[in-house]
């Protein structure tokens, strides 16, 4: 096993990790603010992927415009889900919200099947995004570079927004104590909506990346990134944005290296590996690496 091979695997892991991290951020933010495990979050990845397909391939819009549109679509869908399903049951037990989010998830998947059919569709980016770049022993496509840089830019922008703006301050305050936040004059409905919008925008753009990376999309594609990003968020510590980013990259790297470095027979067990890790972390390190304490422990 050459060092070039390992370097290549690490780059692949970082690409996958970028996507997990983007989706995990939303998971973590939403959990942080209303203690909801939003299972429907993965479906926004699917919606982002199909939006990209429609705008880029069928309408032929330029790529930067498509990326922007995907961010917006993601945000809007996030807002609609929050308003339609989660706001009416705010204050209910946490499990209620989780089950409702499963319901939303299944609903969106099946709306996808209903309107788009379950047939997988090929997804291809324009040639300039498909060019292969060779850096030393490592090769990747230009889209992979775009994925990684967009992810870094958006994460930077998000961290700035959350830590350096008034809205971000309101979001952090609401996450910590909803009642006191209201006493400060913060409109928590708007703050929660903004949180869903931001998290979902990132999940939408992750859908664009998912399509670009794997080349094929179908209405059920949100399941895997959704679930794995949740694992990533738990690894990093649910509720913490830096934790979600860290968890995303760790999971991406671990998964790729698990498959790439172990004998091939083990690679079929990759998902079992991911979820065993989840259960282990929940049991041993319930607050994750950067988390700050978890509710509901009796």
């Amino acid at each position: 096993m050459s060092s070039g091979y390992i370097a290549q695997q690490i780059v692949n892991g970082l690409i996958l990790g970028s996507m997990y991290a983007l989706v995990a951020i939303g998971f973590s933010m939403i959990y942080g603010i209303i203690r909801l495990i939003n299972f429907a979050h993965g479906e926004i990845v699917m919606i982002g992927a199909f939006t990209t397909l429609g705008l880029l391939q069928y309408l032929g819009l330029p790529f930067p415009l498509v990326a922007l549109a995907v961010l917006i679509v993601g945000a809007v869908v996030g807002i609609l889900i929050e308003k339609g399903a989660f706001r009416p049951m705010r204050g209910a037990p946490q499990v209620t919200g989780f089950i409702a989010s499963l319901g939303v998830s299944i609903m969106l998947q099946n709306l996808g099947i209903l309107f788009l059919t379950a047939q997988p569709r090929n997804f291809s980016f324009p040639d300039y995004l498909q060019r292969v770049i060779q850096v030393g022993p490592v090769s990747f496509r230009s889209i992979d570079a775009v994925i990684m840089s967009i992810a870094l830019i958006l994460m930077g922008a998000l961290l700035f927004l959350v830590h350096r703006t008034k809205l971000g301050m309101a979001m952090r305050a609401t996450a910590e104590n909803i009642d006191v936040a209201r006493l400060m004059g913060i409109n928590i409905n708007r703050t929660i909506m903004a949180t869903f919008a931001m998290g979902s925008a990132l999940a939408g753009i992750a859908g664009l990346m998912w399509g670009g990376k794997f080349g094929q999309i179908d209405p059920l594609l949100g399941f895997v990134p959704g679930l794995k990003s949740f694992v990533a968020a738990v690894i990093g510590g649910v509720g913490s944005i830096p934790g979600a980013i860290l968890g995303g990259y760790i999971l991406g790297l671990a998964e790729v290296l698990f498959v790439g470095l172990l004998p091939p027979i083990y690679s079929a067990f990759r998902d079992a590996f991911v979820f065993s890790t989840l259960i282990l972390i929940l049991l041993i390190l319930p607050n994750g690496i950067l988390g700050k304490g978890m509710e509901e422990r009796v």
């Binding site: 301050m169 952090r172 305050a173 910590e176 104590n177 009642d179 006191v180 006493l183 700050k292």
Partner: peptide, 9 residues
Amino acid sequence: EGRGIFSQL
């Protein structure tokens, strides 16, 4: 009551 300081801020 209990001051309600935002401890992370």
